[in-house]
Structure formats: structure tokens, C-alpha cells
Amino acid sequence: MTGPLILLAAAVVTVAIAVLMRWKNGRFAGRLDDREVLTPEQIGAALGDRATLLQFSSAFCSPCRATRTLLTDIADRVDGVVTVEIDAEAHLDLVRELHIMRTPTVLVLDAEGAVSTRASGLPRRDQVLAALNRAVESST
């Protein structure tokens, strides 16, 4: 009797994780309490004039490539926006400081490098564009 019960529990857990991930992926946080400011030295690249899309990636991450493609395309189309990709494993100190738990995690930095908002998982285009808008508005 134990086997079928565990099987049932596994099915429930599976559905719960699938729903949670769908809800969570690409969901940009509202107002962040501690707006950390990142410098070009910390991220190893120059900041965008208006905003920077900072992506943390790792080797064992299948949505990272699709995220990179999307962010690069957006940065190409929107003036003053650049995208920077960081290998999380090579920057574990920064990963801990910014409380990054999974890859991909995308941070939207405003013109001053302050973290405007963030999301983990593969985002949709409209989610990134909305987050970018807020970052640009907050710094002007």
C-alpha cells in the first residue's frame, strides 16, 4: 500500500512544482527594499546609458541560452540598454551578496547601476520590457 501512496504524493508534488515554476519564471519583483548599487568593476563591463540587463548564468542551465538570446535582442533594439552576462560559478561572492539562488537570474540596473528589479527563470519579452521601463523611469 505504501508504493501507490508515495506515487500519488509524487504526482501532487510534481504538479505543484510545475505550477510554481510557471508562476515564478520571469516574474520581476516589485519594489526592492535594499537597492544595491553595482559598479562596472563588479560586473566586469560598462553600464548602459539608460539601463543594464545583468544575467547570471551557469553551465548546468538550459534556459540560460534562450534568456541570453532574448536579452541580447532587446538590448539591440532599445537605445541605451546593454546586456551583461556573468558566469555565476566564477563569481560566487557576488552571487551570495545578491542572494542569487538559481540561473538564469536577471537583474535590471538603472543608469546609476542600482538594482531596479530582478527575476529568475526564462522571462517573456513583455516582462523584460516592462521591467526596463520602470528602471528607466526611476532614474530620470
Binding site: S58, E89, L92, V95, R96, I100, M101, T103
Partner: peptide, 8 residues
């Protein structure tokens, strides 16, 4: 998904 959490 858990890989980075463990690496941390």
C-alpha cells in the same frame, strides 16, 4: 535548478 544553490 538546485545546482547553483548547492554551489553557493
Amino acid at each position: 535548478e538546485l545546482y547553483l544553490a548547492l554551489r553557493r
